[in-house]
Amino acid sequence: MQTMSSSFHRTMLVVQKEIKTECRSYYAMSALFMFSLTTLTAISMSIGNLQLTPQLLAVLLWIILFFSAMTGLSRVFLQEQVSGTIQTLRAYSDAQPILFGKFIYNFLLLNILTLFLLPLFVIVLNVDIYHPLLLLLIFFMGNAGIAMITTLIASMIIYTQMQNALFTVLSFPLILPIFLFCIQLTEAVFVPDTFMLQQPLVFIFIYDLVMIGIASILFDYIWYD
């Protein structure tokens, strides 16, 4: 029996497809996890017994996450371009399920990376977390913004040369506001007395929504042009 599949169903099909192909190749996973692991090891070995301030710890954590994202998240579109499957997708699919499917996949990947990296970071650098739920919320919101921006930029650079360099250069200015506010918020999680956090949280939330809106509008042009 043939049924029409809804936009939501098609979005989830893209997510499933990404997970399925990733589980059979481990291309993005290995890039993200190996980068974060080696960076964390390098940091822990270089600082030795030095006690880092909460601000420095927050900066290090988000730098590891940012550069890990830069190594693996562009794959969602680059791999389609390299293998030629992007032509089949273009021919048989609307733009929006592709954008949101790939965004959800990148978001999941970043959250898995965070859950992998965070305990290691806490153990290796001997960090005290005073507000764990708040930290998860910060990561959840920060990762959503990073995933949306990197997904959009990845779709824009597939026909260019020097894709990896362009991906980082174009993503960074857009990620920077999220990055700075997340560092500020994460710093607060590493100290017992939390200061006023509402404003940066609201800012990240609004920024995420704006980025999702802009990406959704722009992607139709990117996809068909």
């Binding site: 029409m4 599949s5 169903h9 099909l13 893209v14 997708l89 048989y92």
Partner: peptide
């Protein structure tokens, strides 16, 4: 995958 993305979902037998 591609037929579902184009809006048609086929059964296993199809």
């Amino acid at each position: 995958f591609f037929t579902a993305m184009s809006g048609i979902e086929l059964s296993d037998s199809e």
